[in-house]
Design a protein around this nucleic acid. Structure first.
Length: 456
RNA sequence: GGCGCGGUGGUAGAGUGGUUAUGCAGCGGAUUGCAAAUCCGUGAACAGCGGUUCGAAUCCGCUCCGCGCCUCCA
């Protein structure tokens, strides 16, 4: 089984053929750093983290680039609101983003370029677009001229004439064509800006990804990912900018888009108040459970995020960790993940199928605990980025909030008391102790090796 | 209006032109002082209507329903 990827460009699952098998290039649209990451922002981070892990098992080198958008009008608006410098906001937010994503066990990409550190590259690209006749200056702005690109609309399969007929936004008077979009726009005195051949201003939304992907991955590269909503206009415009500036037919070979999240069956939105940040969820559930939960659906499907679903995901991970705990003395073999597991992931990241195989491997491990069955289980889990943390830690400290509330010594003392009561056949006392612990949120399990405890 | 996606058992969620998905929940059993954990067994589905086919939940068409995007939202 070779790696297959669903390509938005062709709307088909295709065999993955890297441009250079020695170094696979992957670019994913990262966060705009002006507020806490919400659970929807976490989906592409997790999905592409799994893809990155999978690719690294298949190719000697993978270069994963994910940008940080630190110049944007939402950031500017926040700065006006709080009176802070945009740099203060973006630095703080980026740090929180990294912290939250680390809790989801999503590693950092190889390169994480920031827009503000690549203004020169963007200006250079805009200049080339003007030279090539694809962009023009008007009223202090520089605009990309959409009709100058014959293939425009190929990714999103849009016809510009139809779109304009149904457009719901007024067209700025300085545009030559209603579909033209901004590459550079002027900044007033109160707005962050950079000197450019067109005066002091700031970049449009799309140009940063074109400029930065080129710098780190070249004119054409293998995979470009992001949320489904970015297909149009963001990715369509990136293609236009990059192909026209670099004079190539091809920008990214494979376009991957993750589906959006809903919350409790409703579209997630601030006005509905059903907006979870990763940060607040981590107060009540381990990041690993959020990660595992997200992977329970195929990445392209819409995902209905529910608290009940989170709870179930956590309970499922408890099962896995329980098995690992009961057989903690067995040292896992250093084996490769079984083929049928890897094959599931190679089929356009079929994580639900992969997880079903993980359940089979768990069952096999429970029935016949051995270095090999444990090794298989852990090898698969490693690719998904789960079951890697300390087993005792999983049961005794599920969230940051738990750490301060539990007194392990006290619990061990009560377990000892109960053991003595049981030895004396005083089951009433033994059960009373168990009930008391239960009321504290502690669950006991009597096993062959003694009694263990865990947080509910 | 344009473009696109989806409707699977109580629930979450894969897959396949004819053969058990898997998890959770349910039911029965083993084990346990009782539990927990684990193991064994078990019922239950493919939105509707046509068509292609020896055979379709799986391919095609239509209908109904739900959802997304349409200039700065992952």
């Amino acid at each position: 089984m070779t790696l297959h990827i669903y390509n938005t460009l062709t709307r088909e699952k295709e065999v993955f053929k890297p441009i250079n098998p020695e170094n696979v290039g992957m670019y994913v649209c990262g966060p705009t750093v002006y507020d806490f990451a919400h659970i929807g922002n976490a989906r592409p981070v997790i999905v592409f983290d799994v893809l990155y892990r999978l690719l690294k098992t298949l190719y000697p080198k993978v270069t994963y680039v994910r940008n940080i958008t630190d110049v944007d009008d939402k950031i500017n608006a926040k700065a006006r609101e709080t009176g802070e410098d945009i740099r203060t906001i973006t630095e703080r937010t980026a740090a929180m983003f990294h912290q939250d994503m680390a809790a989801l066990n999503a590693g950092n990409p190889d390169i994480e370029p920031r827009a503000t550190e690549h203004i020169a590259e963007m200006i250079d690209m805009i200049e080339r677009l003007i030279e090539n006749g694809n962009a023009y200056e008007a009223d202090g702005h520089v605009l990309f001229n959409v009709p100058s690109m014959p293939n425009y609309g190929a990714l999103s399969r849009r016809n510009m004439d139809d779109m304009i007929a149904g457009a719901r936004v007024e067209v700025a008077s300085y545009k030559k064509d209603p579909a033209d979009f901004v590459l550079w726009k002027p900044s007033d005195e109160d707005t962050p800006g950079w000197d450019s051949p067109w005066g002091r201003g700031r970049p449009g939304w799309h140009i940063e990804c074109s400029a930065m992907s080129r710098k780190y991955l070249g004119d054409t590269f293998d995979i470009h990912g992001g949320g489904h909503d970015l297909v149009f206009p963001h990715h369509e415009n990136e293609i236009a900018q990059s192909c026209c500036a670099n004079k190539t037919d091809k920008y990214a070979t494979y376009w991957m888009h993750n589906g959006h999240l809903m919350v409790e069956g409703e579209k997630m939105s601030k006005s509905l108040g059903n907006f979870f940040t990763v940060h607040e969820l981590l107060e009540e559930v381990p990041g690993e459970a959020l990660r595992f939960y997200m992977l329970s659906a195929q990445y392209r499907s819409p995902f209905d995020f529910t608290k009940e679903g989170v709870r179930e995901a956590k309970a499922t991970l408890d099962r896995f960790y329980t098995a690992l705990r009961q057989h903690a003395d067995i040292e896992a073999d250093d084996v490769a993940a079984p083929d049928h597991f890897v094959a599931a992931l190679k089929d356009d990241l079929n994580t639900p199928l992969a997880i079903s195989i993980l359940h089979e491997l768990l069952s096999a491990f429970n029935k016949a605990p051995s270095p090999q069955t444990k090794g298989h289980l852990l090898a698969c889990a490693d690719i998904l980025g789960i079951l890697q943390q300390d087993v005792e830690g999983w049961f005794t400290q599920n969230t940051a909030a738990d750490a301060t509330e539990v007194d392990a010594d006290q619990i061990m003392g009560m377990i000892e008391e109960r053991k003595n009561a049981k030895a004396n056949k005083d089951f009433a006392t033994a059960d009373k102790i168990r009930d008391d612990l239960d009321a504290m949120g502690i669950v006991l399990e009597d096993g062959p090796g003694g009694t263990t405890w865990k947080l509910k």
